[in-house]
Design a protein around this nucleic acid. Structure first.
Lengths: 190, 190
DNA sequence: CTCACTTTTTGATATAAGTCAAAAATAAAT
DNA sequence: ATTTATTTTTGACTTATATCAAAAAGTGAG
């Protein structure tokens, strides 16, 4: 799903409005392993993944890298807290494969918010969607077995399983990577 | 923290604006065990807890009641997804002790959104805060031991520990209630 | 105050999943 | 192509926490 499709799916805009909105975004190609936002720095942009795959992660007390979220085609991505409140980000944003992104600064977004009330609604919808995704994952993590969590992921984000390394997925699902490996092989059926 | 204080802490409004906003809310006293929203019904209001304690919960596949979130003094509460998108709620909202609430309908909120651009900002901030709280809890749940999760709760929501039943807290923290009981007693001092 | 009901505690046991360590398989680099 | 590095798999062992069951403590109604 392209950028304009994704937007109009959430809030209907006219052709002219869409063009104006689009002009406040920039676009760029980014390569695998690029870090878009470092922990501790303010996340300056709201991104949209036109094509590709990224993730957010943090380092826990033992410096272990924990994947927090995957962002694939057609999704908005940001370190939301940091971006909206100009606070230091608690997370890294990393590019997992060569990708094409749209992005907009806070200032430009504010201009759009002021100009188009419908944009505020769009902003709220994007965050509400993030919230409901995170809540959904929390429910999955909180009371399900490792295998059920993996099944949840396959159902929710089928593409991730084939594009992302085992270790990233394991930490995302809150299990040891050995466990995920065994789930995938040993009892690959059911 | 009272209602007007909570609002002005997030976004500055004039005296007159505040009064107008307040007039779009209603207030009521609710009693312990009252269900404000049932699963499957659309959540019609955004609530503010002036005084008291509530929770959201759902029933899992085995009909076990799982607490999802606690809402105490000075917090906004809603089944956010349901309220903003008029979808059936996935959760129940329940009153845990006699409470005093402010609440506003979607229509009235839309009126305020249209009238005061700052209100849109308030809406976004409220949801962003919910998002960051949920993300924080997810991180706590995902890789911490039962005892660490309890400590997280004590640090984050100290009041809950003394007002809410053991079973509700245990399901909120994703552990068996026997486990929580043992944590509280046996090794109460680490 | 007593009886019924709910919640919490304690004990014994089972098990899912973590940890440690090393081998195998893939991918990247010279 | 070989070598070096990274990722995944496999095995043996440990442990935190769930489950089951029953006793104890607490709460509320009549």
């Amino acid at each position: 799903m392209g950028f304009t499709d994704a937007i109009t799916a959430l809030v209907p805009f006219s052709e002219d409005e869409l063009n104006d909105i689009l002009n406040h975004f920039k676009t760029k190609a980014v390569s695998k392993n690029e870090i878009l936002v470092h922990e501790g720095e303010v996340c300056k942009y709201l991104y949209f993944i036109e094509q590709g795959m990224c993730r957010s992660y943090y380092l826990n007390e033992n410096q272990k890298d924990i994947t927090q979220w995957f962002f694939s085609n057609g999704k908005f991505m940001s370190s939301a807290d940091s971006f909206f409140q100009k606070k230091p980000s608690l997370y890294y944003l990393e590019v997992l494969e060569d990708s094409v992104l749209y992005f907009i600064s806070k200032d430009n977004l504010e201009i759009l918010f002021a100009k188009y009330p419908k944009m505020e609604k769009l902003g709220r919808l994007v965050i509400t969607e993030m919230l409901s995704n995170v809540v959904h994952k929390l429910n999955a993590i909180q009371f399900q077995t490792a295998r059920e969590r993996y099944d949840y992921m396959l159902a929710e984000f089928p593409d991730i399983a084939y594009q992302v390394s085992l270790g990233h997925i394991a930490s995302y699902l809150g299990m040891a990577q050995e466990t995920l490996s065994r789930i995938r092989n040993h009892d690959a059926s059911h």
